[in-house]
Every structure is written in C-alpha cells, then in structure tokens.
C-alpha cells in the first residue's frame, strides 16, 4: 500500500492496475476503484432494474464481489467489462429471485410491489413545470426500457449510457459481437415505437 504522501498516484492510475493492487489486499486502491465506478455501476443497475431502492444494495454487492474476485481478474481484459459482467450477473439473479417471489405473491394473492420509477431522483431544476416534464419524460423512457427483453436491455444500456463497443458488450453478455448487433437492432426498433410521441414532437414529420 502506498504511503499517505504519495496517495495522489491512484487518481491517475488505470483501473486495471488498481485491481491488481486490490488483489494484494490494498484497500486504498479499492476505495479509488469504488469512487471511480460507483455512479456508472449504480446507474447501470438502476436503468436495467428500474428500481432505485434495490440499485444501491446491488451496486454495493457488485463491489463486494469485485473485491473477493480481484485475484481472478485477467489483466488482458478491460476492468469495466469485468466489473459490468459481475454487475449484470447480480441483476439477472435478482430478477430471477424477484420472479419467484412474484409467483409466490400471486398464489398468496398479495398486493404487487410499488412502481419502481416512483422514486426517481432528478437534478434540481429552477422551473417546476420543466421539472415535471423532465420527470415524466424520464419515467416514460424508463418504462420503455423495462419492456425490452433482458439481453436487449443490457446491450442497449451498455451501448447508450456506458459507451461500450459491440466487442465489449459481447464480453459482458458472453455472446458474439454480431449477436450484440442484432440485439441492438431489435431493441432500438422497439424503443422507437415506444417513444414515438417524443419523436413526433421533436421531428415534425
């Protein structure tokens, strides 16, 4: 672990190098990694799951697993791809267990869970009307995303919000780059239909 005088080194150090330190038990390197990637991991989960309350727990779990699995990180691969893969697997497991719970609820005739998008936090905006419109728009986008099948949704989120290449997405999902291409074609087609109201407003066709 570096001494306190040289702690600035971490901020310029690539994540791939930091994770090697984490594997040796360097908690300072881990702290830099968490601070660097927490927002992107949190938002990946939030966009995929559509549930603010679960997102933070899952994001914490992602980093917890990253800490434990740091030794298994292969330094040829990109850190974010590796981290997102952990994250996506956790989300898929969560969805599976939620589905099981839903079935149980169905048989017990229990009321459904509250709508996930209700807790969306927005950046402060001076105009309440704008804020309301932005919130409504954001919610409609979130709803549209939730209609996509899981693999299409992940592919789209990783492309749109995290800027991953097809090759990188294929590594996260464990499929070929051409499969990613067709996932994205279908996802975009569906979203275009779902978000048509906004298209007409802004395009003037």
């Amino acid at each position: 672990m570096p001494d306190t005088a040289n702690r600035d080194w971490g901020n310029q150090t690539p994540s791939e190098e930091l994770v090697a330190r984490v594997a040796e038990g360097d908690d300072y390197a881990f702290q830099i990694l968490v601070n660097r990637h927490q927002t992107s991991v949190l938002n990946l989960i939030y966009r995929f799951m559509g549930d603010r309350s679960k997102s933070e727990d899952l994001a914490q779990e992602t980093f917890l697993q990253a800490w434990r699995a740091a030794k298994s990180f292969q330094h040829k691969s990109k850190f974010t791809t590796w981290l997102y893969r952990i994250c996506v697997n956790l989300c898929l497991n969560e969805i599976k267990s939620a589905r099981r719970k839903k079935w149980l609820q169905f048989f017990q005739n229990a009321p459904g869970s509250r709508h996930p998008e209700a807790e969306t936090q927005l950046d402060e905006s001076p105009n309440p009307e704008d804020l309301l419109l932005a919130r409504e728009r954001s919610q409609q986008i979130a709803n549209a995303l939730q209609t996509l099948p899981e693999n299409q949704r992940i592919a789209l989120i990783l492309k749109r919000y995290d800027g991953l290449s097809y090759e990188e997405i294929s590594r996260v999902l464990g499929c070929s780059a051409s499969a990613v291409e067709s996932l994205l074609v279908r996802a975009k087609r569906t979203l275009q239909k779902k978000l048509e109201i906004f298209l007409k407003k802004s395009a003037g066709f």
Binding site: V34, T39, L42, N43, Q121, A134, S138, L195, L199, A203
Partner: peptide, 27 residues
C-alpha cells in the same frame, strides 16, 4: 433520422447519484 432521434431522446433518462458514504458501507 428517426433512429438517431430515438437515441438522442434516451439521453433524457435521469442519472442517479450514490448516496453519501457509499464506499464506507461497502467497506
């Protein structure tokens, strides 16, 4: 053009921020 606009609209999805003390809770 439509596809490009759809892509652009997706950018209006709100980004959330981690609550303070995120790292502390992980550690």
């Amino acid at each position: 053009v439509r596809l490009k606009q759809t892509w652009h609209i997706l950018g209006d999805l709100t980004e959330i921020r981690p609550t303070p003390g995120f790292y502390k809770r992980v550690s």
